Computed example of a mutant assay.
Amino acid sequence: MQKEWLFALFFMLMVMQAVGVRLQVRAYRQAVSHLRRRGYVGIGGGRRRLGPGTIVLLACSGDGTIVGAETMQGMTIFSRFRERPDLYGRTVYDFKNELNTYPAKKRKQYKGYEQAADALIGRLQKEAAARQKENSQLEKA
């Protein structure tokens, strides 16, 4: 009889975990689609060994100005995305340079921010190269 109760409890915990993960994935998708409407989106994440993980979403305009920033930090399924309005209006290049000035120990905490900024910088450079190529082809014609 005790084994059945233990199995039922274990099963219920697994179901609750699955429902929680589904809700968290839905929140992630909503946050990404919300930021995509604002501009280019860069995504980064960082996790310590046995500590809370962080997911960072940064959105920037075509000139590199940050127009949206959200982070999710925590270890449980109850973590939600929170806006970071303190980053709005800064350029992604300045933000990346600031992160590079941090000491190594502090940079580990901001790894997700660094990944998101790198993704945005890469995207902006790709867009600039494509525009430059298009302009050079128009000049040749």
Rank of each mutant, 00 (worst) to 15 (best):
S79K: 10
R29T: 10
Y28A: 00
R47S: 15
D86Q: 13
K111S: 02
A119V: 14
A119G: 14
D63T: 00
A18Q: 05
L9K: 14
F11C: 08
T54W: 08
L9P: 00
L120D: 06
V25P: 13
V32Q: 04
I121P: 04
A27R: 05
D118R: 14
V56A: 00
G20R: 14
L6P: 09
Q125C: 00
D94T: 12
D118G: 12
Q137A: 14
L23Y: 03
R22D: 01
T65Q: 14
P103F: 09
S33M: 07
L13W: 06
A31P: 00
R26I: 01
P85A: 02
G46H: 03
Y102C: 05
H34L: 02
R37E: 12
A130M: 08
Y110A: 11
A141T: 12
K140L: 06
R82F: 01
E139V: 15
E4N: 09
A59N: 04
D118H: 12
V32L: 03
G89F: 13
E134D: 10
V41Q: 00
A130N: 07
R37F: 11
A8G: 10
T65F: 13
Y88S: 05
V25A: 13
D63Q: 14
P52W: 11
R123N: 03
F7A: 14
P52Y: 08
K126F: 01
V25Q: 07
S136N: 00
K96H: 12
K140V: 03
A119H: 00
K106L: 11
K133F: 09
G68A: 06
A104E: 13
T65H: 14
R36P: 05
Q2C: 02
D94I: 04
A69L: 13
V19A: 00
K3M: 10
R29P: 00
T71P: 00
G122R: 03
M1Y: 15
Q115G: 04
Q17S: 04
A116W: 06
M72E: 05
M12S: 05
F95K: 07
P85Y: 10
I77V: 14
F78A: 15
K111P: 09
F81C: 00
V92D: 01
R123A: 02
N100G: 02
A117C: 08
A129E: 15
P103S: 15
R107C: 10
F81H: 02
W5A: 08
A8D: 06
M1P: 05
V15W: 07
K108F: 03
M14C: 01
G39I: 14
V19R: 12
R131S: 05
R82T: 10
K108Q: 04
R29V: 04
T71A: 12
L120M: 13
R37L: 09
T71Q: 03
L58W: 09
Q132A: 10
E127D: 12
A116I: 01
R131L: 12
R26D: 05
Y93M: 05
G44K: 13
G122N: 13
R123P: 09
V56W: 02
M14F: 12
E134V: 13
M72P: 06
D86L: 04
Y88N: 04
Y110Q: 10
S33H: 06
S79E: 07
L13M: 01
C60W: 12
V92H: 03
L23R: 04
D118P: 09
L50Y: 15
V56Y: 02
T91C: 14
Y88C: 01
G39R: 06
L58K: 12
R22W: 11
T71N: 07
Q109A: 13
A18Y: 11
S136K: 12
R36E: 01
G20H: 15
G46D: 13
G112F: 00
